[in-house]
Design a protein around this nucleic acid. Sequence first.
DNA 1: TACATATGATCAT
DNA 2: TGATCCTATGTAA
Length: 280
Amino acid sequence: MPEGHTLHRLARDLRRDLKGSTVHAASPQGRFADGAAQLDGRVVTGTEAYGKHLFLAWDSGLLLYVHLGLIGKFRRKPAPLPDPQGEIRLRLATDDVAWDLSGPMTCTIDTPAIRTRLLAKAGPDPLRRDAEPDRFVTGLARRSSPLAVALLDQSLVSGIGNVYRAEICFLAGIHPLVPAREVSSEDAKVLWVLSVDLLTIGLRLNRIVTRDPQEVGLRSPSRISDDERLYVYKRDGEPCRRCHTTIVWADVGGRRVWWCPRCQPQSARRPSPRRQPVLT
DNA sequence: TACATATGATCAT
DNA sequence: TGATCCTATGTAA
């Protein structure tokens, strides 16, 4: 679940449910009992996402910092509040709703300095208005690693994960294994704009959809089925949705990346990118 | 029942 | 590069 859009969606949903409320906090699983005790009975004063980082501010002046990692989840449970199911590290509850956190990579209480430290080494986040795309463009030009590796590096760009990186390369028409520094600044800008567009759709739908709805004969990405919503991610052995060439994959730094050998050739000569339409 | 896998990241070797 | 952490789910045995 968790690429950047998930965390921004959580920040928004948690804000709507909890901001200004006195919260009952508990750690049913027990591994965050001390932390939950510190939060219990306090008021949430704000929420924020930056890339895959999530912060909840409290009236104590402290921050709850959450990183979901690969398997973490933060699930909403409307009243009547059910008993916690499974390994719930933290439950934040009001009379109306409970939020259950399970499997986070990080869940800590800290001073606001933690946020400053984290943001200082984070690349621009396509979902934030204060993002500086130039940091991505110039940073990319300095990397010798494959583009696919660079796109997962959160110090270069914040919020892209394994699904979006494959899909962004496809839509840009760029082979994921090309050295990042060989990507022209023009193409780097295209990669940035694609990131903004795709993550924005993901935030709105709370689901990753990269497919152009018109290709499927639909008006909105919200109607695209799970089977049809992606171009290349995990589609090895299947035909490209645009040219029918068989999708292939490779291991890059321990993680798989998929691409269409024809739509994303290694050579510099390639079809001009077809951008996803921006949705309002 | 066991194993593989997952949209992540860090630490050790 | 590999091991490790966190949890849930799907598939194989």
